[in-house]
Amino acid sequence: MPVNRNALIRYRTIDSCLQNRRRKWTLDDLIDACADALYEFQGIDTGVSRRTIQGDIEMMRSNKLGYEAPIVVVDKKYYTYSDKNYSITNIPLNDQDMQVLGEVANLLQQFKGFNHFADLNEMVSKLEDKIYTQKTHSTPVIDFEKNDNLKGLEYIEVIRKAIVAKKTICITYQSFKAREASAFCFSPYLLKEYRNRWFVLGRTHQRNNLLLNLALDRIQAITDDNEDYIENKDIDLAAYYSNVIGVTKSPKQRDVEVVFWIDSANAPYVITKPLHHTQKLLSEDATGKIFSIRVIMNFELERELLGFGAKLRVLGPRILVKQIKDQLKKTLGQYEGATPDGQ
């Protein structure tokens, strides 16, 4: 049953009062205590009615919220708990509660490992401990895409702080193509996630302040640096990746209209999960549908299109058609002369 914040504050206040057995609590005392609590936590100074607190007490006594609080009246005047050890905060969780908490824990677990979510990590750990102590063994009903072996996540918070503070950092970096690592000063602008990999966009302080997109899993070390930060004055970071599938692009690169056909059996997948937010349906017939998207031509685009195999055919632009054909020829060449067992 949904409960608003003000009601929860009143329930907790009444509970705290009734646990304090060093004094006797009249209805007026409980009204005053709840009014003080609402003013302290919510800034509400209109007071609380007698009827509201009487209703709260009955709600706490009931099972509607799972409390079933043993609230009794002594001497026809004073409210207290018949069980001195009772508190609404000590109520054991039922099976439904445990199922919901388990699902929430699984969801929050996706953020563990990110330094930026240090407080969240602690909260998840507490939640997991609560579930464990309640001995739940429910089967997970949500399974998120994740990569537990992903490298570089420890740099997310370092880079985020540098972006916010506009601080230069020194990065030791080795791309997949480089024979050895190199170190350079870098002014970071934007953190970007794509398919469970993280990247940072910024300017190097070498090579005419070239704009670079660095993969965090290729970073070997990050240290602070005293060089002046290079302000971003020419890039709209909110829209920089809007015409891209993936992360690969250069500032002067222009998008093109990519037209492709996909067979009727697989068209529904592209309709329900568009390749890009610019996707449009151009035409259709019994064999399939023709779509267009307006994006930068890059490696990630080719990989996305090639992933459909024979189910998709690129119709334009011509340069992209040629690139896809070349890739398919190379792929076919990998199988020429191969035996069924791959030898």
Results as ranks from 00 to 15, higher is better:
residue 132 Y to W: 10
residue 80 T to W: 00
residue 31 I to L: 10
residue 31 I to E: 07
residue 79 Y to R: 01
residue 84 K to Q: 05
residue 119 D to A: 08
residue 51 R to G: 10
residue 152 G to I: 03
residue 61 R to E: 05
residue 75 D to W: 06
residue 57 I to K: 00
residue 46 T to M: 14
residue 101 L to A: 02
residue 83 D to P: 01
residue 123 M to Q: 13
residue 36 D to W: 10
residue 89 T to F: 13
residue 117 F to L: 13
residue 133 T to I: 15
residue 83 D to L: 02
residue 27 L to T: 05
residue 22 R to I: 00
residue 154 E to W: 04
residue 62 S to Q: 01
residue 146 K to F: 11
residue 61 R to P: 00
residue 143 D to K: 13
residue 124 V to N: 08
residue 122 E to W: 09
residue 109 Q to G: 04
residue 112 K to L: 14
residue 25 W to E: 06
residue 50 R to F: 10
residue 54 Q to D: 10
residue 31 I to N: 08
residue 110 Q to R: 10
residue 142 I to K: 07
residue 70 P to D: 04
residue 120 L to E: 15
residue 148 D to Q: 13
residue 101 L to T: 02
residue 150 L to I: 08
residue 148 D to W: 11
residue 34 C to L: 02
residue 94 N to V: 09
residue 113 G to K: 06
residue 149 N to Q: 05
residue 135 K to M: 09
residue 86 Y to E: 00
residue 141 V to K: 04
residue 152 G to D: 07
residue 89 T to V: 11
residue 122 E to Y: 13
residue 63 N to P: 04
residue 133 T to R: 15
residue 102 G to K: 00
residue 125 S to W: 00
residue 67 Y to S: 06
residue 96 Q to S: 15
residue 119 D to I: 08
residue 88 I to Q: 08
residue 131 I to C: 09
residue 130 K to L: 15
residue 49 S to I: 11
residue 43 G to D: 08
residue 146 K to C: 02
residue 85 N to S: 12
residue 139 T to D: 04
residue 25 W to V: 02
residue 29 D to E: 11
residue 93 L to F: 15
residue 131 I to F: 08
residue 44 I to G: 14
residue 81 Y to D: 01
residue 36 D to T: 09
residue 38 L to Q: 12
residue 99 Q to S: 03
residue 41 F to N: 13
residue 91 I to P: 14
residue 49 S to W: 11
residue 26 T to K: 02
residue 145 E to H: 09
residue 127 L to W: 05
residue 127 L to S: 06
residue 80 T to M: 01
residue 116 H to R: 14
residue 38 L to R: 07
residue 56 D to N: 07
residue 100 V to N: 13
residue 41 F to A: 07
residue 126 K to S: 12
residue 137 H to V: 15
residue 92 P to Y: 09
residue 142 I to W: 04
residue 131 I to Q: 05
residue 109 Q to Y: 09
residue 107 L to E: 05
residue 99 Q to K: 02
residue 120 L to F: 14
residue 111 F to A: 12
residue 108 L to H: 11
residue 48 V to Y: 14
residue 126 K to L: 06
residue 64 K to A: 11
residue 110 Q to W: 09
residue 111 F to M: 10
residue 83 D to I: 01
residue 36 D to K: 14
residue 97 D to Y: 12
residue 83 D to F: 01
residue 84 K to G: 00
residue 38 L to S: 10
residue 37 A to T: 03
residue 125 S to L: 10
residue 148 D to L: 14
residue 106 N to M: 15
residue 121 N to S: 15
residue 48 V to W: 13
residue 153 L to Y: 01
residue 85 N to T: 09
residue 72 V to T: 04
residue 85 N to C: 07
